[in-house]
Design a protein around this nucleic acid. Structure first.
Lengths: 161, 161
DNA sequence: TGATATATGTCATAGTATAACATATCAAGA
DNA sequence: TCTTGATATGTTATACTATGACATATATCA
Protein backbone atom coordinates (compact mmCIF):
# COMPACT_ATOMS: atom_id res chain seq x y z
CA UNK A 1 0.00 0.00 0.00
CA UNK A 2 2.97 2.32 -0.38
CA UNK A 3 2.57 5.21 -2.77
CA UNK A 4 5.75 5.60 -4.71
CA UNK A 5 6.21 8.67 -6.77
CA UNK A 6 7.33 11.34 -4.35
CA UNK A 7 10.88 10.07 -4.06
CA UNK A 8 13.71 10.17 -6.56
CA UNK A 9 14.86 7.04 -8.29
CA UNK A 10 16.88 5.74 -11.20
CA UNK A 11 14.64 6.99 -13.90
CA UNK A 12 16.26 5.75 -17.11
CA UNK A 13 16.48 2.35 -15.56
CA UNK A 14 12.83 2.32 -14.58
CA UNK A 15 11.81 3.31 -18.10
CA UNK A 16 13.86 0.58 -19.74
CA UNK A 17 12.65 -2.02 -17.26
CA UNK A 18 9.05 -1.09 -17.69
CA UNK A 19 9.19 -1.09 -21.46
CA UNK A 20 10.81 -4.50 -21.40
CA UNK A 21 8.18 -5.80 -19.03
CA UNK A 22 5.36 -4.41 -21.13
CA UNK A 23 6.90 -5.88 -24.26
CA UNK A 24 6.96 -9.24 -22.62
CA UNK A 25 3.42 -8.99 -21.37
CA UNK A 26 2.20 -8.01 -24.83
CA UNK A 27 4.01 -10.89 -26.41
CA UNK A 28 2.51 -13.29 -23.90
CA UNK A 29 -1.00 -11.94 -24.42
CA UNK A 30 -0.86 -11.60 -28.17
CA UNK A 31 -1.10 -7.82 -27.98
CA UNK A 32 0.62 -5.75 -30.63
CA UNK A 33 2.93 -3.23 -29.04
CA UNK A 34 3.41 -1.29 -32.27
CA UNK A 35 5.79 1.62 -32.81
CA UNK A 36 3.35 4.40 -31.90
CA UNK A 37 2.16 2.50 -28.87
CA UNK A 38 5.62 1.77 -27.64
CA UNK A 39 6.78 5.29 -28.20
CA UNK A 40 3.70 6.60 -26.43
CA UNK A 41 4.47 4.41 -23.46
CA UNK A 42 8.04 5.71 -23.38
CA UNK A 43 6.85 9.29 -23.51
CA UNK A 44 4.50 8.63 -20.62
CA UNK A 45 7.25 6.97 -18.63
CA UNK A 46 9.57 9.92 -19.04
CA UNK A 47 7.26 11.91 -16.74
CA UNK A 48 5.75 11.18 -13.40
CA UNK A 49 3.22 13.79 -14.25
CA UNK A 50 -0.06 13.37 -15.98
CA UNK A 51 0.16 14.23 -19.66
CA UNK A 52 -2.77 15.38 -21.74
CA UNK A 53 -3.51 13.50 -24.93
CA UNK A 54 -2.52 16.59 -26.88
CA UNK A 55 0.86 16.78 -25.13
CA UNK A 56 1.51 13.24 -26.19
CA UNK A 57 0.24 13.96 -29.66
CA UNK A 58 2.61 16.91 -30.04
CA UNK A 59 5.57 14.71 -29.25
CA UNK A 60 4.44 11.84 -31.45
CA UNK A 61 3.80 14.18 -34.30
CA UNK A 62 7.25 15.79 -33.88
CA UNK A 63 8.76 12.35 -34.15
CA UNK A 64 7.12 11.53 -37.44
CA UNK A 65 3.95 9.80 -36.32
CA UNK A 66 0.53 11.06 -37.29
CA UNK A 67 -0.47 14.52 -36.25
CA UNK A 68 -4.17 14.13 -35.56
CA UNK A 69 -5.84 13.54 -32.17
CA UNK A 70 -6.93 9.96 -32.83
CA UNK A 71 -3.29 8.95 -33.12
CA UNK A 72 -2.68 9.84 -29.49
CA UNK A 73 -6.07 8.78 -28.21
CA UNK A 74 -5.82 5.37 -29.80
CA UNK A 75 -2.39 4.68 -28.42
CA UNK A 76 -3.50 5.85 -24.99
CA UNK A 77 -6.65 3.76 -25.23
CA UNK A 78 -4.64 0.68 -26.04
CA UNK A 79 -2.24 1.31 -23.19
CA UNK A 80 -4.91 2.08 -20.66
CA UNK A 81 -7.19 -0.75 -21.69
CA UNK A 82 -4.29 -3.04 -20.96
CA UNK A 83 -3.31 -1.34 -17.75
CA UNK A 84 0.03 0.13 -18.83
CA UNK A 85 -1.27 3.66 -18.52
CA UNK A 86 -4.06 5.05 -16.37
CA UNK A 87 -6.41 7.89 -17.00
CA UNK A 88 -6.64 10.53 -14.31
CA UNK A 89 -10.24 11.64 -14.58
CA UNK A 90 -9.73 14.68 -12.41
CA UNK A 91 -7.19 16.03 -14.88
CA UNK A 92 -8.46 14.64 -18.16
CA UNK A 93 -4.97 13.32 -18.53
CA UNK A 94 -2.93 10.15 -18.45
CA UNK A 95 -0.09 8.75 -16.41
CA UNK A 96 2.14 5.73 -16.91
CA UNK A 97 1.33 2.85 -14.63
CA UNK A 98 3.75 2.53 -11.75
CA UNK A 99 2.93 -1.15 -11.20
CA UNK A 100 2.76 -2.67 -14.66
CA UNK A 101 3.39 -6.19 -13.44
CA UNK A 102 -0.25 -7.13 -13.11
CA UNK A 103 -3.84 -6.01 -13.33
CA UNK A 104 -4.83 -3.89 -10.41
CA UNK A 105 -7.11 -1.18 -9.17
CA UNK A 106 -5.06 1.97 -8.81
CA UNK A 107 -5.53 4.98 -6.57
CA UNK A 108 -3.84 8.32 -7.14
CA UNK A 109 -2.53 11.19 -5.10
CA UNK A 110 -2.34 14.34 -7.19
CA UNK A 111 -0.34 17.33 -6.00
CA UNK A 112 -2.14 20.51 -6.96
CA UNK A 113 1.09 22.46 -6.72
CA UNK A 114 3.72 20.49 -8.64
CA UNK A 115 1.25 18.23 -10.45
CA UNK A 116 3.14 15.11 -9.54
CA UNK A 117 0.96 12.04 -9.51
CA UNK A 118 1.67 9.15 -7.18
CA UNK A 119 0.04 5.82 -7.73
CA UNK A 120 -0.81 3.20 -5.16
CA UNK A 121 -2.31 -0.21 -5.63
CA UNK A 122 -5.47 -0.90 -3.71
CA UNK A 123 -7.53 -3.87 -2.82
CA UNK A 124 -10.77 -3.15 -4.65
CA UNK A 125 -12.66 -5.45 -2.30
CA UNK A 126 -11.63 -3.55 0.79
CA UNK A 127 -12.43 0.06 0.08
CA UNK A 128 -15.34 2.31 0.84
CA UNK A 129 -16.76 1.81 -2.58
CA UNK A 130 -16.88 -1.93 -2.22
CA UNK A 131 -18.78 -1.64 1.04
CA UNK A 132 -21.23 0.84 -0.42
CA UNK A 133 -21.71 -1.24 -3.53
CA UNK A 134 -22.35 -4.38 -1.51
CA UNK A 135 -24.99 -2.64 0.57
CA UNK A 136 -26.72 -1.43 -2.62
CA UNK A 137 -26.37 -4.61 -4.61
CA UNK A 138 -24.33 -2.71 -7.19
CA UNK A 139 -21.62 -4.47 -9.21
CA UNK A 140 -18.47 -2.40 -9.63
CA UNK A 141 -16.56 -2.84 -12.85
CA UNK A 142 -14.15 0.04 -12.55
CA UNK A 143 -13.30 2.39 -9.71
CA UNK A 144 -11.86 5.87 -9.80
CA UNK A 145 -9.94 6.83 -6.66
CA UNK A 146 -8.18 10.14 -6.91
CA UNK A 147 -7.11 12.45 -4.11
CA UNK A 148 -6.02 15.99 -4.72
CA UNK A 149 -3.88 17.89 -2.26
CA UNK A 150 -0.31 18.75 -1.38
CA UNK A 151 2.64 16.42 -1.64
CA UNK A 152 5.22 16.46 1.18
CA UNK A 153 7.67 18.59 -0.77
CA UNK A 154 5.20 21.27 -1.75
CA UNK A 155 3.69 21.35 1.70
CA UNK A 156 7.09 22.02 3.26
CA UNK A 157 7.84 24.74 0.74
CA UNK A 158 4.48 26.35 1.38
CA UNK A 159 5.13 26.32 5.11
CA UNK A 160 8.53 27.91 4.57
CA UNK A 161 7.06 30.79 2.59
CA UNK B 1 -23.24 4.36 4.51
CA UNK B 2 -26.34 3.48 2.58
CA UNK B 3 -26.38 4.50 -1.05
CA UNK B 4 -29.76 5.87 -1.89
CA UNK B 5 -30.63 6.43 -5.47
CA UNK B 6 -31.63 3.04 -6.78
CA UNK B 7 -35.02 2.99 -5.14
CA UNK B 8 -38.13 4.96 -5.97
CA UNK B 9 -39.25 7.75 -3.72
CA UNK B 10 -41.51 10.77 -3.54
CA UNK B 11 -39.66 12.87 -6.01
CA UNK B 12 -41.56 16.16 -6.06
CA UNK B 13 -41.38 16.14 -2.34
CA UNK B 14 -37.66 15.58 -2.25
CA UNK B 15 -37.12 18.43 -4.69
CA UNK B 16 -39.17 20.88 -2.69
CA UNK B 17 -37.56 19.82 0.57
CA UNK B 18 -34.08 20.10 -0.80
CA UNK B 19 -34.64 23.50 -2.32
CA UNK B 20 -36.06 24.74 0.96
CA UNK B 21 -33.11 23.34 2.84
CA UNK B 22 -30.62 24.89 0.46
CA UNK B 23 -32.42 28.22 0.66
CA UNK B 24 -32.12 28.11 4.40
CA UNK B 25 -28.46 27.16 4.32
CA UNK B 26 -27.70 29.98 1.92
CA UNK B 27 -29.52 32.48 4.06
CA UNK B 28 -27.63 31.31 7.11
CA UNK B 29 -24.29 31.50 5.35
CA UNK B 30 -24.86 34.73 3.50
CA UNK B 31 -24.80 33.03 0.14
CA UNK B 32 -26.92 34.43 -2.67
CA UNK B 33 -29.17 31.76 -4.09
CA UNK B 34 -30.13 33.85 -7.09
CA UNK B 35 -32.72 32.97 -9.73
CA UNK B 36 -30.33 31.18 -12.11
CA UNK B 37 -28.70 29.31 -9.28
CA UNK B 38 -31.98 28.22 -7.77
CA UNK B 39 -33.37 27.18 -11.11
CA UNK B 40 -30.18 25.29 -11.87
CA UNK B 41 -30.49 23.43 -8.59
CA UNK B 42 -34.09 22.54 -9.40
CA UNK B 43 -33.12 21.27 -12.82
CA UNK B 44 -30.43 19.11 -11.27
CA UNK B 45 -32.84 17.76 -8.68
CA UNK B 46 -35.34 16.71 -11.31
CA UNK B 47 -32.91 14.00 -12.38
CA UNK B 48 -30.98 11.39 -10.50
CA UNK B 49 -28.75 11.30 -13.48
CA UNK B 50 -25.66 13.32 -14.13
CA UNK B 51 -26.32 16.28 -16.39
CA UNK B 52 -23.71 17.93 -18.56
CA UNK B 53 -23.24 21.67 -18.22
CA UNK B 54 -24.61 22.09 -21.71
CA UNK B 55 -27.77 20.15 -20.87
CA UNK B 56 -28.36 22.52 -18.01
CA UNK B 57 -27.51 25.47 -20.21
CA UNK B 58 -30.06 24.43 -22.81
CA UNK B 59 -32.81 24.37 -20.22
CA UNK B 60 -31.77 27.63 -18.60
CA UNK B 61 -31.58 29.32 -21.93
CA UNK B 62 -35.03 28.01 -22.90
CA UNK B 63 -36.40 29.53 -19.74
CA UNK B 64 -35.08 32.98 -20.47
CA UNK B 65 -31.73 32.94 -18.75
CA UNK B 66 -28.50 33.57 -20.60
CA UNK B 67 -27.54 31.29 -23.43
CA UNK B 68 -23.78 31.16 -23.13
CA UNK B 69 -21.73 28.44 -21.40
CA UNK B 70 -20.52 30.59 -18.50
CA UNK B 71 -24.12 30.96 -17.37
CA UNK B 72 -24.37 27.26 -16.66
CA UNK B 73 -20.79 26.81 -15.49
CA UNK B 74 -21.04 29.64 -13.02
CA UNK B 75 -24.26 28.39 -11.51
CA UNK B 76 -22.83 24.87 -11.28
CA UNK B 77 -19.62 26.21 -9.79
CA UNK B 78 -21.54 28.05 -7.13
CA UNK B 79 -23.64 25.02 -6.32
CA UNK B 80 -20.75 22.61 -6.24
CA UNK B 81 -18.44 24.90 -4.30
CA UNK B 82 -21.10 24.96 -1.64
CA UNK B 83 -21.81 21.26 -1.80
CA UNK B 84 -25.31 21.37 -3.26
CA UNK B 85 -24.20 19.72 -6.45
CA UNK B 86 -21.25 17.42 -7.13
CA UNK B 87 -19.15 17.00 -10.19
CA UNK B 88 -18.78 13.48 -11.53
CA UNK B 89 -15.30 13.53 -12.98
CA UNK B 90 -15.75 10.28 -14.82
CA UNK B 91 -18.60 11.79 -16.82
CA UNK B 92 -17.62 15.44 -16.98
CA UNK B 93 -21.05 16.05 -15.61
CA UNK B 94 -22.88 17.12 -12.49
CA UNK B 95 -25.40 15.61 -10.13
CA UNK B 96 -27.50 17.14 -7.36
CA UNK B 97 -26.27 16.34 -3.89
CA UNK B 98 -28.34 13.68 -2.19
CA UNK B 99 -27.26 14.75 1.30
CA UNK B 100 -27.39 18.53 1.24
CA UNK B 101 -27.68 18.84 5.00
CA UNK B 102 -23.98 19.20 5.63
CA UNK B 103 -20.51 19.21 4.17
CA UNK B 104 -19.30 15.76 3.35
CA UNK B 105 -17.07 13.68 1.18
CA UNK B 106 -19.23 11.91 -1.36
CA UNK B 107 -18.72 8.66 -3.24
CA UNK B 108 -20.66 7.68 -6.33
CA UNK B 109 -21.93 4.55 -7.98
CA UNK B 110 -22.52 5.14 -11.66
CA UNK B 111 -24.58 2.68 -13.69
CA UNK B 112 -23.11 2.37 -17.15
CA UNK B 113 -26.42 1.12 -18.50
CA UNK B 114 -29.09 3.50 -17.24
CA UNK B 115 -26.69 6.24 -16.16
CA UNK B 116 -28.28 6.56 -12.77
CA UNK B 117 -25.91 7.95 -10.18
CA UNK B 118 -26.19 6.98 -6.54
CA UNK B 119 -24.42 8.98 -3.90
CA UNK B 120 -23.13 7.78 -0.57
CA UNK B 121 -21.49 9.71 2.18
CA UNK B 122 -18.10 8.49 3.27
CA UNK B 123 -15.76 9.05 6.10
CA UNK B 124 -12.78 10.62 4.38
CA UNK B 125 -10.50 9.59 7.22
CA UNK B 126 -11.30 5.92 6.88
CA UNK B 127 -10.85 5.12 3.23
CA UNK B 128 -8.02 3.72 1.18
CA UNK B 129 -6.93 7.12 0.10
CA UNK B 130 -6.52 8.33 3.65
CA UNK B 131 -4.31 5.37 4.49
CA UNK B 132 -2.22 5.82 1.40
CA UNK B 133 -1.92 9.54 1.98
CA UNK B 134 -0.86 9.05 5.58
CA UNK B 135 1.86 6.61 4.57
CA UNK B 136 3.14 9.11 1.98
CA UNK B 137 2.84 12.22 4.12
CA UNK B 138 0.43 13.65 1.58
CA UNK B 139 -2.33 16.05 2.63
CA UNK B 140 -5.65 15.38 0.91
CA UNK B 141 -7.86 18.36 0.18
CA UNK B 142 -10.41 16.71 -2.03
CA UNK B 143 -11.13 13.12 -2.94
CA UNK B 144 -12.81 11.66 -5.97
CA UNK B 145 -14.45 8.28 -5.40
CA UNK B 146 -16.44 7.02 -8.33
CA UNK B 147 -17.35 3.46 -9.19
CA UNK B 148 -18.74 2.47 -12.53
CA UNK B 149 -20.72 -0.69 -13.04
CA UNK B 150 -24.21 -2.09 -13.11
CA UNK B 151 -27.03 -1.12 -10.80
CA UNK B 152 -29.30 -3.87 -9.43
CA UNK B 153 -32.08 -3.16 -11.92
CA UNK B 154 -29.89 -3.21 -15.01
CA UNK B 155 -28.04 -6.26 -13.83
CA UNK B 156 -31.27 -8.20 -13.47
CA UNK B 157 -32.45 -7.09 -16.88
CA UNK B 158 -29.14 -8.10 -18.42
CA UNK B 159 -29.37 -11.52 -16.80
CA UNK B 160 -32.93 -11.95 -18.09
CA UNK B 161 -31.89 -11.28 -21.69
C1' DT C 1 -26.96 57.57 -1.50
C1' DG C 2 -22.67 56.30 -3.02
C1' DA C 3 -18.90 53.00 -3.11
C1' DT C 4 -17.59 48.35 -3.44
C1' DA C 5 -18.27 43.79 -4.22
C1' DT C 6 -20.92 40.29 -6.45
C1' DA C 7 -23.57 38.41 -10.19
C1' DT C 8 -25.15 38.10 -15.04
C1' DG C 9 -24.67 38.16 -19.75
C1' DT C 10 -22.05 38.28 -24.03
C1' DC C 11 -18.31 37.15 -27.43
C1' DA C 12 -14.41 34.74 -28.30
C1' DT C 13 -11.42 31.01 -27.82
C1' DA C 14 -9.08 27.06 -25.61
C1' DG C 15 -8.98 22.28 -24.47
C1' DT C 16 -10.72 17.44 -24.75
C1' DA C 17 -12.60 13.70 -27.53
C1' DT C 18 -14.71 10.88 -31.19
C1' DA C 19 -17.08 9.54 -35.78
C1' DA C 20 -16.19 8.14 -40.28
C1' DC C 21 -13.54 6.70 -43.91
C1' DA C 22 -9.27 5.37 -46.81
C1' DT C 23 -5.02 3.01 -46.65
C1' DA C 24 -1.74 0.00 -44.80
C1' DT C 25 -0.14 -3.84 -42.14
C1' DC C 26 -0.50 -8.14 -39.77
C1' DA C 27 -1.94 -13.16 -38.77
C1' DA C 28 -3.44 -17.37 -40.13
C1' DG C 29 -5.38 -20.71 -43.13
C1' DA C 30 -5.87 -22.50 -48.10
C1' DT D 1 2.84 -18.05 -51.08
C1' DC D 2 -1.37 -16.00 -51.62
C1' DT D 3 -5.61 -14.60 -49.98
C1' DT D 4 -8.58 -13.05 -46.74
C1' DG D 5 -10.21 -11.10 -42.63
C1' DA D 6 -8.90 -8.55 -38.72
C1' DT D 7 -6.23 -4.97 -36.80
C1' DA D 8 -3.80 -0.67 -36.94
C1' DT D 9 -2.67 3.94 -38.82
C1' DG D 10 -3.57 8.19 -40.76
C1' DT D 11 -6.67 11.81 -42.33
C1' DT D 12 -10.65 15.22 -42.27
C1' DA D 13 -14.28 16.90 -39.93
C1' DT D 14 -16.88 17.77 -36.02
C1' DA D 15 -18.71 17.39 -31.28
C1' DC D 16 -18.29 18.14 -26.54
C1' DT D 17 -16.31 20.47 -22.38
C1' DA D 18 -14.52 24.65 -20.30
C1' DT D 19 -12.66 29.30 -19.40
C1' DG D 20 -10.83 34.28 -20.23
C1' DA D 21 -12.18 38.89 -20.74
C1' DC D 22 -15.12 42.53 -20.64
C1' DA D 23 -19.62 45.31 -20.16
C1' DT D 24 -23.73 45.78 -17.56
C1' DA D 25 -26.64 45.04 -13.76
C1' DT D 26 -27.71 44.03 -9.04
C1' DA D 27 -26.88 43.57 -4.24
C1' DT D 28 -24.61 45.05 0.23
C1' DC D 29 -23.36 48.04 3.46
C1' DA D 30 -20.96 52.11 5.26
Amino acid sequence: MDALGFETHDHDHCIADTVALVEKRCLDSGLQLTAVRKRTLEIMLEEHRALGAYDVLARLSQEGFGSQPPVAYRALDFLSKNGFVHKIERLNAFVACAYPHADHSPAFLICRECHLVAEAETDPAQGMLAKIAASSDFVIERAVLEAEGLCPTCRKQGAAT
